[in-house]
Amino acid sequence: MGIVLTQRPGVTRWAPLVWRATSVLPGAGPADWKELRREGDVAEIHAGTLTLELHGAEAEAYAHNLAARTPCLYAVMREGSGRPQDLVLLTASPYEAQDYAESGEELVEKIPMPAAILEWVEDFVARHHVEEPFKKRRRDRKDIDVVEDGIGDARIRQIADVYRSPTSRRGKVA
Rank of each mutant, 00 (worst) to 15 (best):
G10A: 02
V11K: 06
V11P: 00
R13G: 11
A15E: 07
L17V: 05
V18I: 03
V18D: 08
S23N: 11
L25M: 12
L25H: 04
P26I: 00
P26H: 10
P26N: 10
P26V: 01
G27W: 03
G29C: 06
P30L: 12
P30F: 10
W33C: 09
R37L: 10
R38L: 01
R38K: 15
V42S: 09
H46Y: 07
T49L: 01
T49V: 15
L50K: 02
L50M: 03
T51V: 14
H55C: 05
A57D: 15
A59I: 01
E60G: 13
A61Q: 06
Y62T: 03
Y62W: 02
A63E: 12
A63D: 04
N65D: 15
N65Q: 13
A67L: 05
T70M: 14
P71N: 15
P71W: 10
P71D: 07
C72L: 02
V76M: 15
M77K: 12
R78C: 13
E79I: 02
G82P: 07
R83G: 03
R83Q: 14
Q85A: 12
V88L: 14
V88E: 15
L89D: 13
T91F: 13
A92R: 01
A92N: 08
E96L: 14
Q98Y: 05
D99H: 12
Y100P: 03
Y100A: 05
A101L: 07
E102S: 11
E102P: 00
S103V: 03
E106I: 00
L107P: 01
V108E: 07
K110Y: 02
K110F: 03
I111R: 09
P112Q: 05
M113Q: 06
M113A: 09
M113Y: 07
A115K: 10
A116H: 10
A116F: 00
L118E: 11
L118S: 11
L118K: 14
W120G: 06
V121I: 05
V121S: 08
E122V: 04
D123T: 11
R127E: 15
H128F: 09
P133Q: 06
F134Q: 09
K136S: 10
K142V: 10
K142P: 00
V146T: 13
V147F: 09
V147A: 13
E148T: 02
E148R: 12
I151K: 13
I151Q: 14
G152C: 00
G152V: 01
D153R: 04
I156M: 08
R157M: 04
